[in-house]
């Protein structure tokens, strides 16, 4: 077994919580505050892991399984992500679909666990999550379709390895369109601001945070950690699209990749600071817009 491919998932597992810290720091900077330390999420995770979980008597085992399933899905998904010329630990034909459905399974587990609590509030959050997920899925799959048409259906690692400076010269428009579409997806899927506010807890427009209200202790730690891994996964997808890493020297790829992810996080922080949260009725509009970006990329690929 080669060691190198494991560097990426390891980096993801170790650094993912740091990325959320960076977002919070950027937001604090824009608000004129000093903000929490970038390591805050690590402290929170350690604190939560030392506590015990409390479960309501009205719940079934589903809620106990939920966080573990979510975390397992995210950890598996990080194993599929390549960086530049370096292949992921596991890669096979069609691993993209597995990636999409691992994310789907994680969502399914969250939603089931939320419904299991029997709280109408969490049920509402679950309903919204599923509604927006249904709208977000086309944009992911259309983007994937474009990449598959362009680079062949031979695994995510090969696809990403196909992106080089020449690709940018011949079909940069495609990459930019899909990356923009996936950036919107990143914001929507990770409950960042134009769609949902990660900081609010008791508010009627919130989606994701409401579903995890009943967790405490290690379960909450799992959910928070899984959320940071999910953020990492989407950021990694966007960075892989945008940086023609194959054209770089091998030793440069890892630092450039990490710098790219940090840059995406800073961008997310800026977006969160300067954009107001959309009204709930407006959210489908930007999700459809994101799918349309991918659709245009598809059309450019097919007829252009």
């Amino acid at each position: 077994m080669k060691i190198m491919p494991w560097a990426l998932p390891l980096a993801a597992w170790i650094l993912a919580p740091l990325m959320l810290g960076i977002i919070n720091r950027v937001k604090a900077f824009f608000a004129g505050r000093r903000g929490p330390s970038v390591w805050q999420l690590y402290y929170d995770l350690f604190k939560l892991l030392r506590k015990a979980s409390v479960y309501s008597r009205s719940t079934s085992p589903v809620i106990r399984v939920g966080p573990a399933v979510v975390l397992a899905c995210m950890i598996l998904a990080t194993l599929l992500l390549p960086w530049g010329g370096l292949a992921a630990p596991t890669t096979f034909t069609g691993d993209i679909i597995l990636l999409a459905y691992l994310l789907g399974l994680a969502r399914f587990a969250t939603v089931l666990a939320a419904l299991d609590t029997g709280s109408s509030f969490e049920g509402m959050g679950a309903s919204r999550e599923v509604q927006f997920a249904a709208l977000a899925e086309p944009s992911f799959f259309l983007g994937m379709l474009v990449l598959v048409l362009h680079f062949g259906f031979s695994g995510l690692s090969n696809m990403v390895a196909g992106i080089s400076l020449e690709t940018w010269q011949t079909s940069g428009v495609l990459l930019i369109l899909v990356a923009c579409s996936w950036f919107v997806l990143l914001l929507a899927e990770n409950c960042r601001i134009p769609v949902d506010d990660p900081n609010t807890h008791l508010e009627l427009t919130m989606i994701h945070e409401v579903m995890v209200l009943d967790y405490g202790g290690p379960d909450l730690a799992y959910v928070l950690y899984a959320a940071s891994l999910k953020m990492w996964i989407f950021a990694a997808l966007v960075v892989n699209l945008l940086v023609p890493m194959r054209s770089l020297a091998p030793w440069l790829q890892a630092p450039v990749f990490l710098a790219g992810i940090v840059l995406v996080m800073v961008l997310v922080g800026i977006v969160e600071s300067i954009v107001a949260r959309l009204r709930l009725q407006q959210v489908p509009k930007i999700l459809i817009g994101s799918a349309l970006l991918s659709l245009i990329a598809l059309i450019v690929r097919l007829v252009g």
């Binding site: 009725q281 489908p284 509009k285 459809i288 817009g289 799918a291 349309l292 659709l295």
Partner: peptide, 8 residues
């Protein structure tokens, strides 16, 4: 929203 869908 529906306009965008029609746009598709």
């Amino acid at each position: 929203g529906p306009s965008l869908l029609c746009g598709t």
